[in-house]
Design a protein around this nucleic acid. Sequence first.
DNA 1: GTCCTTGCAAATTCTTTGCAACCTC
DNA 2: GAGGTTGCAAAGAATTTGCAAGGAC
Lengths: 148, 148
Amino acid sequence: MKLEKINSDSFENYIRSKGLKITPERLAILAAIVTFNGHFNADELYAAVLTNGEKISRATVYRSLPLFTESRIIHETIRCGEKSSYESAIGIAHHDHLLCLKCGKVLEFMNHEIERLQDELCKKYQFESVDHSMSIRGYCKSCQKTND
Amino acid sequence: MKLEKINSDSFENYIRSKGLKITPERLAILAAIVTFNGHFNADELYAAVLTNGEKISRATVYRSLPLFTESRIIHETIRCGEKSSYESAIGIAHHDHLLCLKCGKVLEFMNHEIERLQDELCKKYQFESVDHSMSIRGYCKSCQKTND
DNA sequence: GTCCTTGCAAATTCTTTGCAACCTC
DNA sequence: GAGGTTGCAAAGAATTTGCAAGGAC
């Protein structure tokens, strides 16, 4: 798939530009990241790599996470109670989140107008944006009824 | 100060409505929260309570955090690398964040238009909003020059 | 008096690190 | 071959929990 190729390229470029090395472990982790459509945490990523039949250690996953965030393959998203959570930044339309405090459901949405305002803001503050996350916490439709 | 009274009331109402109890420890923690203008984490909150001359245990602070978030006195904010971070939600105008990936600086801003759009979105999804956080990651003005 | 809370210390959970062997460039 | 990388197991950091004693209502 085209998108994946582009992304593995950008990862490899980053790695090389830093004088680091492409290893089978890192490629296995990248492959696992690509399979995620939504959010994942370190442990889920580790599990996904194992599921793919690759044997690596948890430490390697943890050590690779900064490389992937720095090469903008993934980014850290808000944590809502749990551990650090990441999200693949590739091949997915950017979106923001509505988090239900009751059932834990995550609704994703995308609003061009908000995106545009964010760009304006960055301009105003002369801030070079890399990515952003927005999340609204509250109660989803079905939890409002049962809300105590 | 008026604001503080209002907030300690809302905390006490919440506590009572749940059949829980107002304790000196909880009040000491609330008092410490009020002194924060910005962000803090569990340990900083614990330290602040001690600084105020109150002797409580770290476990009590951890156990109280959910109570304060549920009563909307504080809310969890995005974590950027560190531990869970909280922010007092009282007496402070709501704002969002620009996080510099290089120097770690946090710029705060507030944009009414974005707030308004968020409200619209919630309406559209029939989502009852409690609070929200938005953060834009990137490079601040001074770090762009030295950016490698 | 009942049931919630606290402090303590131990237990968990998540993440990082030291080190010797190993692999990439 | 030099220097980055890995796995392992141990170390660390943050947070949670069990339990007996204490406190709020």
